[in-house]
């Protein structure tokens, strides 16, 4: 327990002292915070145009924003988590495990009565705490910003939904942080340690959903999951096979339901369980790293 806590505390300290890491955290926080503002600008712009064409007698349709949930203003955060949040988590994860190998401090650590599982678990928890604090801050900012936009504080249900969104965002980001930790542990070069998880991330976020749904690449930048192909095409089979691995789409599905996006319906439980299963599997893969892998030097 002592090693876990010591490693976690040390990881938090090292992460907060690294300029790149802090810059990434600030960028992510800024983008998520701007999400509400962007949503509000979109709403007011569309409403203004709608009122103009309504006054000109060009439409009788209702205002498309009239019935949207207050949580609509947080919807852009979904894509920021998939794009900026995941990449930030990868960099933090790579830094966490590469740090000791790069500076050779690993020998000082491993000459201590330290259990390597506890050591790596501590690093994971330290990173988890940093990411949790960033998500808590962004959630608080979103909550306050939405309250200002709609002119009243958010009620209990939407507040809990925002918190739920933060929780599922943490799970997704920690999966990518673990991917970064893994390549940081096993790569022979620092550049490889960073490039490999970026390639894996792009495959998960863009390639897998595309082969399973025939979605246009730009559609994958939407905060809602790509629509599944239907009608007995080969996409059905491919989609069924690749869907569970397209974790960013699973995340979008959960986030859309939690944030009350009407275009996505159904029960998010299966997707949540899948994300948790991937998280647990990744934790297991990373913490069982043998001592000799921790000690392996870089070819640089």
């Amino acid at each position: 327990m002592n090693t876990v806590l010591t490693s976690a505390r040390h990881e938090i300290l090292c992460t907060l002292r690294a300029r790149v890491a802090v810059l990434l955290l600030v960028v992510f926080l800024g983008m998520v915070s701007l999400s509400s503002l962007i949503g509000w600008i979109t709403n007011t712009t569309v409403t203004r145009v709608y009122e103009k064409i309504l006054a000109d007698g060009l439409t009788t349709a209702p205002n498309p924003f009239a019935a949207v949930s207050a949580l609509y203003y947080s919807r852009n955060s979904v894509i920021y988590v998939v794009l900026i949040g995941a990449l930030m988590a990868i960099i933090l994860g790579v830094q966490a495990t590469l740090r000791d190998r790069k500076s050779a401090t690993v020998d000082l650590v491993l000459s201590r009565p330290v259990n390597t599982v506890a050591r790596i678990l501590g690093q994971f928890l330290g990173l988890g705490a940093v990411i949790a604090v960033v998500l808590a801050a962004s959630t608080t900012i979103s909550w306050a910003a939405i309250g200002v936009i709609i002119g009243t504080p958010l009620g209990v249900d939407p507040t809990l939904r925002l918190m739920g969104f933060a929780a599922v965002s943490w799970v997704l980001m920690m999966i990518f942080a673990l991917l970064g930790m893994l390549t940081g542990l096993y790569s022979r070069k620092e550049t490889t340690a960073l490039l490999v998880p970026f390639v894996v991330w792009s495959a998960i976020a863009f390639v897998l959903p595309q082969v399973g749904t025939a979605a246009r690449p730009v559609a994958l930048l939407n905060p809602v999951p790509a629509l599944a192909a239907s009608g007995g095409t080969s996409f059905d089979l491919i989609g069924a096979l690749t869907g569970p691995f397209a974790i960013t789409e699973q995340f979008k599905r959960v986030a859309s339901i939690v944030l009350r996006d009407d275009s996505v319906t159904g029960n998010p439980v299966a997707s949540i369980l899948l994300l948790l299963a991937v998280l647990i599997a990744m934790i297991w893969i990373v913490v069982v790293t043998p001592r000799r892998a921790l000690r392996s030097g870089l070819n640089e």
């Binding site: 090292c14 740090r99 500076s103 050779a104 401090t105 000082l108």
Partner: peptide
């Protein structure tokens, strides 16, 4: 243990 060319967490 003191390794050759000992390194620490510089930050």
């Amino acid at each position: 243990y003191l390794p050759e060319n000992v390194q620490f967490y510089d930050n």
